[in-house]
Design a binder for these strands. Sequence first.
DNA 1: GATGTCTGCCC
DNA 2: ATTCTGC
DNA 3: GCAGAATGGGCAGACATC
Length: 860
Amino acid sequence: MWLDPHRPRPFAFVSHGHADHFARHQRVLCSPGTGHILVKRYGVKASKIEALDWGEQRIINDHHITLHPAGHITGSAMIRIEGPDQSILYTGDFKTRSSHTAEIAEFPKSDILIMETTFGRPQFVFPPTDEIEKQISRFACETLEDGETPVFFAYSLGKAQEALAILHNAGIETVVHKTVFEMTQACREIKVDLPNPVLLEKNIPPGVAVIAPPNAVRARAIRSHKKRRTAMLSGWALTPGSQYRYQVDQVFPLSDHADYPGLLESVEKVSPSLVYTLHGSTREFARDLRAKGIEAWSIYGDDQLELLESASPEIPLKSELSRPTSDLRGLSELLESLTTTASRLKKIELLSIFLQDCNDEELPFVTRWLSGSGITHLGHVMIRQALLEVTGFPLAKYKTVSASQNDTARTARLLLEEAPLNPLAHSFKEVATHFDQLRTADGSIAKTQLFSCFLQQCHPAEGETMVRLLTGGLRAGAKEGLYEEAVAKAFNLSPSDIRYAAMLTGDLGEVAIAAKNKTLDQIQLRPGKPIKPMLASPSENTEDIIKWHDSKDIPLWLEPKYDGIRSQLHVTPNGAHLFSRDLRSLDNEFPEILEAARALPSCLLDGELIAYAEGKRLTFFDLQKRLGRKKIQGDLFLGAAIPVRFIAFDCLYAQKSLIDSPLEERRKALESLELLDPFTTIPLIRSNGTDIKALEREFKKAMSDDNEGLIAKNCLSSYQPGRRGQSWKKLKGVMPTLDCVVIAAQQGHGKRAGVLSDYTFAVRDKESGELRTLGKAYSGLTDNEIEDLTDHFQKTTIEKISRRVVKVEPTIVLEIAFDKIRPSKRHDSGLALRFPRIKAIRSDKSLDEIDTLQTAKKLV
DNA sequence: GATGTCTGCCC
DNA sequence: ATTCTGC
DNA sequence: GCAGAATGGGCAGACATC
């Protein structure tokens, strides 16, 4: 017998009539109420249903079976199975509070408790039910008094009937959406005390409230009704920002699940010796129970419980420290442990054991994945599409789950837990092949399809892991340095050696396998293999540079900062290669540079690609036209229209590796190459590092030569790949600013999903008197400022422009700094800013003190 | 075929 | 690109 | 000091829609 399986089974217990707990089984055991709902809702033949009354006993394979009310919705049941040695209680979904339509839950004592923990975190404490009900009726009354229509979104079976009862008791007339109508009738047929429902017709009559399922948000009858105020009834109302995520005017925490205290209370009543948790915050709740001395574990992935097949029920037992195996499943478990372990040393320990377990073929893959390379990323749209394809769920369902989770990977896990899957074991090699297929697949449709096929063969936990890997959001609390330490520990080498090798290759996978084979000393820098470029950190002004350099004796070298594309040129006897800042290959985009590079000896140059024609440097925007091209075409053939040059400023290899050599020496090597067009060497100013006047002069000159600024380098410093180190400094010009007014605000993503974090700003067109938009920005504000502004904009909202954007009264003046301003079709001012950011909230300025479009145009 | 929208990648 | 935040 | 998150404009490409 199966408990709430998602796939059709010969014989299954169905706890209640929600779709995610039901499939078309050959025989169903359930309560009489649920049986009736299954018949009405899914057209199940009555002959397939074996209804068991509350407390009535049935014997299956020597086990005594009884059903008990779960209080979740009408007819929802827990099942208690008593065997010769022990008893098990499976709760299905449940709630502890009383309600209008569900029976009062009972919690019979049992040895093993399998419970749902949808709201298994301490922050989930619902207010008293009568208080929520009062709020709901008040919302409805006030809306009606204002001549508008209150619209409640609630699941069509369960909460919709609760809402109907609440509104009925408050004397409010209500019409309901078709599915709500049908489910209400079904409940009335089994003697649930509910008013006769009135079906929602094409148009909403005045003076009534509406109840509709959440997926009817876009139903025509509701959308076309302009005078509406919407409310969502959901336990997730307690999560911050839920109002924005549901895109409704109000949320009320009316839930048909138990809240955190309810969950604890029910465990107490059952007084089990062992608890397994399902759904929602399973791990967190299990951990909390263990802290109270009750053995409790999250059931991982397999939430389709098969019982009574053999004499003793087999339930997968999980131990946090169990040694992971080397496949995707093992990786999932590893990530899980990493995420929940705070201790650095423990993480290194877990990782090193895991790495030791991998064979030679797998080791490089896994190490690469963990350290965040070797995987092409998929956008959230593609991932969403793949999930919808696998699960067959409607978009609305995805959105609901996604809104509650705020995390694509976690959303994937929850959706997959409800989907019909065909889990297979996946070796790392298969996973690597899949990543490869995704990388080479042409177009998002092909990628989506590939991925959905793969997901179909994953356990939900593995699906989550795949999404974490593919979105780059591993969030395992481990950074590159920690992975390096783990590799060192796994193969008994010093972390500094590992770190150095990793710096050389930029590929921890290669380092790991070399460490395992004790061939670390063979890892050397060589042309053809990209390494992470050394970066400069910003400085405020010339003084900062002098202070940073802090030496009379070491020369301070200055180079102009060109506005081009940072790239690495690798010349080998077999051909040349160009790499971007993120080590992406630029070979296809600049074939003529590679061709010309054949004349050079083997070397590795760091530099900047710039557009250059007729003896003049062109802008970044000209250069950008040559990026991302798949075909060389027409005018752009061989860069005829937009020729480029490679301006070298460093030489990392010439006959031997130079990255540990001082800049002086590298520069010598660079100059000895005697580069010819299209290659040149960047002009260099050898300054003495103490003369601030001279520095000032050079900076002004660099700016007047149309450069972005200066790069300052210590001439004795080595080349430090990646972001580590502080040996280069950049100094950019003072940004111009404009005072603009915010006219629209937009809801953010991720951790900013609950705030209006992004502001569209405008200047005044003196000719027409209108406000004209110039751009958007959030950067520059602290989280607190964003919160305050969110508050303000909520109060000054004029109208909703779209799901995520609201138009606001023009009250907030921002001082916006930017790099450049140029003509653009993006905004209605006809201008746009490059690198806009908020320099200050000018609460001292009013709307009529903002800058004008005419002023802005002068800065172009 | 023109237009609009999304994504990835450069800054 | 930039900025802020948490470690 | 550093990594990570969340965000800007603009381009080319890939699709969807009309």
